[in-house]
């Protein structure tokens, strides 16, 4: 599984990263988590608000830090 956290480095992006790592640990799922700070790479996902969560190349959320339960749902979607 390939997870990307998009954001220019604000506090909310850090929080999203932490939540994702915790969610993965709780679900016992291995994934490659990468933070994307380059603005052109962020924009290649065609979003207009950050932070954003991308799982396996699909934008799941943009502009907010979702609850851990929600993050787990997005990971689950990609597992199935």
């Amino acid at each position: 599984m390939d997870i990307k956290i998009l954001g220019t480095g604000c506090g909310r992006c850090e929080k999203l990263e932490k939540e994702v790592i915790n969610a993965l640990a709780e679900m016992d799922v291995a994934a490659d988590v990468k933070k994307v700070k380059d603005i052109r790479e962020i924009m290649s996902y065609k979003i207009m608000s950050t932070p954003a969560l991308v799982v396996n190349g699909k934008v799941k959320v943009a502009g907010k830090v979702p609850k851990r339960q929600e993050i787990k749902k997005y990971i689950q979607e990609e597992l199935a």
């Binding site: 954001g7 220019t8 480095g9 604000c10 909310r12 992006c13 603005i39 962020i42 924009m43 979003i47 207009m48 608000s49 950050t50 932070p51 502009g63």
Partner: peptide, 12 residues
């Protein structure tokens, strides 16, 4: 909006 969203907004 959070100041961290100002660039994506600007570009959009």
């Amino acid at each position: 909006f959070c100041s961290c969203s100002s660039i994506p907004l600007f570009i959009g």
